[in-house]
Nucleic acid binder design. Structure first.
Length: 142
DNA sequence: GCCAACGTTGGC
DNA sequence: GCCAACGTTGGC
């Protein structure tokens, strides 16, 4: 079991839109970056992830989980690009902002800070628990 | 809307 | 295989 972080610009695809998809979830398509793709290839069913709003909001707004392994990205004919499906699991009771993350020394090595532009990132277990705690989730999904 | 960071492309 | 040009991302 591993932890991840998915970035999305809310005016393109928001947390609310993912929640509206329900248990079926949604294809995390459109990723055109090898590192992000490789992260998705490494994902397993049930892996948990943060859902982060970039550009607007700049905060972790919810928890999602992987519900389909990496498969071809249906939005392109290029066989190089793959994606997983994810579905919403829980709201962050209190969204954790980028500012909060940057202000917390325990999270100084988080990819969100160090690899700002990577759109699908790995999250370490201690980082996962810390961000969940900051977000008001007493029993973080794991 | 600007611009810095950084990933990708393509000529050589 | 290098590196300049270019495009995109994303914080501010």
């Amino acid at each position: 079991m591993a932890y991840w972080l998915f970035k999305s610009e809310p005016f393109k695809f928001s947390w609310q839109m993912l929640k509206d998809k329900g248990a079926a979830g949604e294809e995390w398509d459109g990723v055109r970056n090898y590192q992000a793709r490789n992260n998705m290839r490494a994902m397993e069913i049930g892996d948990k992830g943060f859902f982060y709003h970039s550009n607007e909001g700049l905060e972790v707004v919810g928890i999602c989980e992987v519900c389909a392994l990496a498969h071809h990205d249906s939005t392109t004919d290029d066989p190089r690009w793959e994606c997983v499906d994810i579905r919403a699991v829980a709201d962050m009771p209190k969204p954790v902002t980028l500012k909060d993350v940057k202000a917390n020394p325990k999270l100084a090595d988080m990819a969100l800070v160090t690899s700002m532009r990577l759109s699908v990132q790995p999250v370490k277990e201690d980082e996962w628990l810390e961000v969940c705690r900051m977000g008001g989730l007493d029993n973080p999904p794991r």
